[in-house]
Design a protein around this nucleic acid. Sequence first.
DNA 1: TTGTAAGCGTTATCAA
DNA 2: TTGATAACGCTTACAA
Lengths: 333, 333
Amino acid sequence: MPLTLKDIAKIAGVAESTVSRAINNKPGVGAQTREKIMEIVREHNYQPNQLAQGLAKRETHLLALIVADLTGPGYSEIIKSMEKTANQAGYQLIICNTDNNLAKEKTYLNLVGQHRVDGAIILGGTLANNNIMKLALNQDELLVLVNCLAEEVLIPTVLVDNARGGYLATVHLLEQGLEKIALVMGPANDFLESEKLNGYQQALADYNIPFREQLIIKTNLSREGGYNAFFRVMKIDELPDGFFVTNDLLAIGLTEAIKMGGYLIPGDFAVVGYGDSIISAVINPALTVVAEPLQQLGRLAAEYIIKLINDQAIEEVIRVLEPELIIRESSSP
Amino acid sequence: MPLTLKDIAKIAGVAESTVSRAINNKPGVGAQTREKIMEIVREHNYQPNQLAQGLAKRETHLLALIVADLTGPGYSEIIKSMEKTANQAGYQLIICNTDNNLAKEKTYLNLVGQHRVDGAIILGGTLANNNIMKLALNQDELLVLVNCLAEEVLIPTVLVDNARGGYLATVHLLEQGLEKIALVMGPANDFLESEKLNGYQQALADYNIPFREQLIIKTNLSREGGYNAFFRVMKIDELPDGFFVTNDLLAIGLTEAIKMGGYLIPGDFAVVGYGDSIISAVINPALTVVAEPLQQLGRLAAEYIIKLINDQAIEEVIRVLEPELIIRESSSP
DNA sequence: TTGTAAGCGTTATCAA
DNA sequence: TTGATAACGCTTACAA
């Protein structure tokens, strides 16, 4: 059973309030008394009970990290940097993996409502907008969104400019002299995916290349999806000369299919992927990719929620980060 | 400001203690009263303040997940399953990324001491045995170890039989008719790595193949490490015919080096890796690997710590899980 | 500068 | 079956 503040007060022969002031570096304690108290605190390695502190101050120093699937691409990196930033400010992150399960998501959002946590960060995933809207509007709960976007309601958000990413990838391929660029992407109802499509279209427009619906392959974000996408595209009348793939798994499948078909990358088809995971470097040839600033994403999200908690102003409510093109072998002639 | 138990009591016209009994399904409340109270609870969507509950009951329903590096191989999968199990039992996981920083590790272990969490799970990493020993011995703190092992002190542990993994990999190569099997591994002071070496040696012994120190390449767990390992091994007098690589990154580097040298896998060199990540399937040719039961690892760890918290007996204090060999192209003739 | 005492929202003990 | 009331460990007016 650890020592309590009361114990320390007794040992020091002062009142509890004096000890409280001393350990919280608050004014109103004589230098002598303060030193004496701190001495005892050190000696006994006293640690305040944060539960009691939380109850009295009505704060937990806990943050909920709500994520649909912890194993998502780049999430470890994002979370690591998030945790680091939060920790430096004295906050801890609670893992809330919703498994895309609406009931679980609701339960977790409730943590915020119950004042179990001081705020929540929602990372990626399709948003159950209703839940979030309720939370954000009806109550004064603190939320930050990362790599996803809420409709109809303004919530502080940090995300990567996926349209820009799509634009960069497509322009890069166009600059290689290619004109028939296929886009292999996930479901278009996913906001992140549709943004990449927008960027793709914008690039074509800027280069006066007509948009062809046939070249857009929407599939599920899996290896098989990528694999089949290639053979689907090979059935159209005019074959593509390059591919922009919006996801790692898709890229794996696609490149396998290309090789399986006896074609060369980038000789027959140039390929640009999305997300700079280890996978893109392992794929042969090494994949040119649009890289997202994962660490920055995590850090900013943590900074945002902590600012919110401390009633500090946030410069940009929707903070958009720039992706970067990393050129490797799969796209150079 | 959410409703409190007091508010409910006032509305129901009963004492707080009665409400407490009712919502906690405790005996000593008349059926009528109970129903009336629960009605009001539902109507107002009352949620008990868990901080206050924790203070009164001296439990937080929080678990610390202490990990050296969140981005470790397979950790997402382990953690996901851990979180699921914990959550089903009403516990939440707090992320504690130590960054291999002893000071941070100490701080985090303190969470347990401060009764900020009910228990802690330590996942992988080199152990600062001193810290843990103190915690486990001096105080009655609750700890579970996953994929690491404490010396000198008995702490409930869940881990994969890495010696068995090394054995399986080596025997598989031997069964292919190979006799000169090189082992590319990380630093031998890492318990997990040295276990794999043990398994390797046992396999050789069982097949009456002499152990040759030359064939053991110890390097850092990186892509470059794997790459250089190949060229180091090519300098010895009698070349190997197969490789057992204990890590994904090493495998990437090694296969690159083999191809760079103009050799074929498995024609010239068979390769077996460790850990069934997506990477092993991407490497060309697809890698035969020793796969670890990641989900089981996470689930059991959570179950263990919860049992510990509830004073339930644990069947095996050190629970050893079996790895499994997944045969792909890199090792078949 | 220091102490007293009332909260924070529960649970638990003991009477009634 | 119920209700007061004292904890739990800390913060914070308000007094002294």
